[in-house]
């Protein structure tokens, strides 16, 4: 489990702060099949890190390791280390429920609960006991919806079911839901793949705004999206992190031939 730790500052070309999350020698197996090979990757606060690569390359698998969502899947085994603020998340004293409160997740397809808009956002604070009073809770819901850029659209119908919203609104509701529990990292698994271009643009703007507060990881299929929204990019291929670095560098001057091929559209 505990692989080589610590962050080698020399390897980092850019002088950035201590990584929020750092994965080292991370390998994931589904039964006999290895899905991720020895991945080293840092995620920094106040930055958007995008993960790109062809389907089935392991980028979503990596994402699900960060909040240990892979625990849910039967037969899934994770080796290596992921540290958050320097603390190993696989350590026995780490509670997965507390971890997931710190690491929020937004899924590929908007998945609002079959509850009202208000209750969707209030769900997380409620289970974690974040608000003492009803008015605290209402305040938290409103501010979360505001930060997700949804409040103005739904303020008059907070009691309506979350599923009555449009796809893009649903996805922003899911982002508001994730924000409401006060995470430090937000993981987004192809958050725009089910949305139309206008809704996608709204989410992309939102992601850029949220960067001021959170460390954000976005898995995306679209290289244009990665270029637009992220500061750093990692390219996965066949379960291997081929290349990782500043987005501008990855897209203009990749070091690896496979990255070059992918971004120029030769495969994927």
């Amino acid at each position: 489990m505990q692989a080589d730790l610590g962050i080698d500052e020399d390897e980092e070309k850019e002088p950035v702060a201590l990584a929020k999350v750092s994965a080292r020698s991370l390998s994931v197996y589904y039964g006999d099949k290895q899905a991720l090979f020895d991945v080293d990757l840092d995620i920094h606060a106040n930055q958007v890190t995008s993960l790109i690569g062809p389907s089935g390359c392991g980028k979503s698998t990596f994402l699900r390791c960060v909040n240990r969502m892979n625990d849910v899947i039967e037969g899934c085994r994770v080796e290596g280390s992921i540290r958050m603020d320097g603390h190993e998340i696989h350590a026995p004293e780490v509670d997965v429920v507390s971890l997931r409160r710190r690491v929020g997740m937004v899924f590929q397809n908007p998945n609002p609960f079959p509850k009202s808009i208000f209750e969707n956002v209030a769900y997380g604070p409620r289970i974690h006991g974040l608000s003492r009073t009803r008015s605290d809770l209402e305040e938290l819901v409103v501010s979360s919806l505001e930060r997700a850029g949804l409040f103005d659209e739904v303020k008059d119908r907070l009691g309506e079911p979350g599923t009555s919203l449009s796809g893009g609104q649903q996805q922003r509701l899911c982002i508001a839901r994730a924000i409401a529990v006060g995470p430090e990292v937000i993981l987004m698994d192809e958050p725009c793949s089910a949305l139309d271009p206008i809704a996608t643009a709204r989410i992309e703007e939102l992601i850029d705004e949220l960067r001021a507060t959170y460390a954000i990881v976005v898995v995306t299929h679209s290289m244009q999206q990665a270029a637009r929204i992220s500061q750093r990019t990692g390219f996965f291929h066949l379960g291997v992190l081929v290349e990782e670095g500043e987005t501008s560098k990855i897209f203009t001057n990749p070091e690896d031939a496979r990255t070059q091929d992918y971004i120029t559209g030769r495969f994927g």
């Binding site: 958050m84 603020d85 320097g86 603390h87 998340i89 350590a91 004293e93 780490v94 509670d95 429920v97 507390s98 971890l99 710190r102 289970i127 974690h128 006991g129 006060g182 995470p183 430090e184 507060t213």
Partner: peptide, 22 residues
């Protein structure tokens, strides 16, 4: 946002999560 503190403490169970797990 979250209260500052040692990462380890924030990731491990507090009394409330212990109750929830129970």
């Amino acid at each position: 946002m979250s209260s500052p503190g040692p990462a380890a403490a924030r990731l491990s169970e507090d009394a409330r999560t212990r109750r929830r797990h129970a």
